[in-house]
Write a protein that binds this DNA or RNA. Structure first.
Lengths: 202, 202
DNA sequence: GGACTGACAGATTTCAATATCTGTCAGTCC
DNA sequence: GGACTGACAGATATTGAAATCTGTCAGTCC
């Protein structure tokens, strides 16, 4: 018996097993085997298999949240910052999907397994969008009377470029053109947007 | 032997069998049974099971295309016409999904079985959007230097409200708010949009 | 003679027996 | 005595043999 078994070591081993076997085949027994312990030991650290998977997923998403943290010290306009942020998110997801399709698919499954996780992830990223839009409102570059609602609208309007259900379309050679066109349209809208209380502004 | 077996009768029977058994269980033998003929007879009219299913699907989509045909004689602005058109499409899909989830899922599967069918459907509807946008450009209500490309951008930006991959979200009580926010943003964008050749307008 | 049948080969699906996995817990071992 | 094991019950997944389905075509029937 070398070191004491830690939650951290279990998470690392689980990630490795998920990479190797995929989400359908990866078992708690496999994780225990990789660690050289009985699977009962894993259950002293995580109450269920679902909780273990969720912990791995949350760790992975947190790394994305940190990487996507918007910067405001680059001397860019809010529109440029927003475009760059959306492009960065798209590039990350697209490259992940294209370069490591199986790993991407694995995390796709893991995320969709839980109710809370996708909500947690989306809320966090929409919060980052809201901060960029708020910066634009502060400089009078953007117009909106409800920043959080507008941030969600920007998120929803760019769904095609971040929602994993559309991942297959990310291989299309014209996808960058489609991205540019949607982002341009959205940014043009932000300069003049006013969300109606009723549907009466059209 | 009553009437001669027609392609039309086979299509109707296939639709009925699909409704009753769903896409996974519906077989050519079932269709033949429903018509009181041998399944060999069905193959005199359609070369393969896939072709038969595709014919049923195309028929169903054509009905949508007709129903969605935009009207320009209502005295509405282009923005109002576009919002109403998008709302109508969303309402159709949402009610179909909510009221007859199994039938909707069946057609979802049928459409996704073929490469050509979704492309055919999307091209047709984006063409209708383009005509609305063109009308807006003609009245100087909208600004764009590339109508088809902008129409596609509008389609892509509203993906969440027509792509069946998002159907589960259509039950959300706030989905209409999300729709209104995205459409307002897009329409605001259309009033000022100019798609960049490079990505340099942000 | 042209529409239809029904038997057929190969492909796909179903189903039930078998194996594996999850989560628990009494017992072992430093 | 607290971390760990391993046997266990019930749930889930795998497998392969049997059944069904797809697509063909020689033959039947008006």
């Amino acid at each position: 018996m070398a070191e004491a078994l830690t939650s951290e070591a279990i998470l690392a081993a689980t990630e490795e097993v998920l990479r190797r076997y995929g989400p359908a085949k990866a078992t708690v027994v496999d994780v225990a085997k990789a660690l050289g312990v009985s699977h009962g030991s894993v259950y002293r650290h995580f109450p269920t298999k679902a909780a273990l998977r969720e912990a791995v997923t949350r760790r992975w998403l947190d790394a994305i949240h940190v990487a996507m943290e918007p910067r405001f010290d680059q001397g860019l306009t809010a529109a440029e910052t927003l475009r760059a942020w959306l492009q960065k998110l798209f590039d990350r997801k697209r490259h992940s999907h294209v370069d490591e399709p199986e790993l991407f698919a694995t995390f796709r499954v893991l995320v969709s397994e839980s109710q809370n996780i996708p909500e947690y992830h989306v809320d966090h990223l929409v919060g980052q969008v809201a901060r960029i839009i708020q910066a634009g409102v502060d400089t009078q570059e953007f117009v909106t009377d409800d920043v959080p609602k507008t941030a969600l609208a920007v998120w929803d309007a760019t769904e095609k470029f971040h929602h994993p259900a559309h991942a297959q379309e990310w291989g299309d050679p014209h996808i960058q053109d489609a991205f540019d066109a949607v982002v341009s349209l959205v940014i043009a809208g932000l300069r003049y947007n006013r969300i109606p209380s009723a549907a009466g502004d059209a």
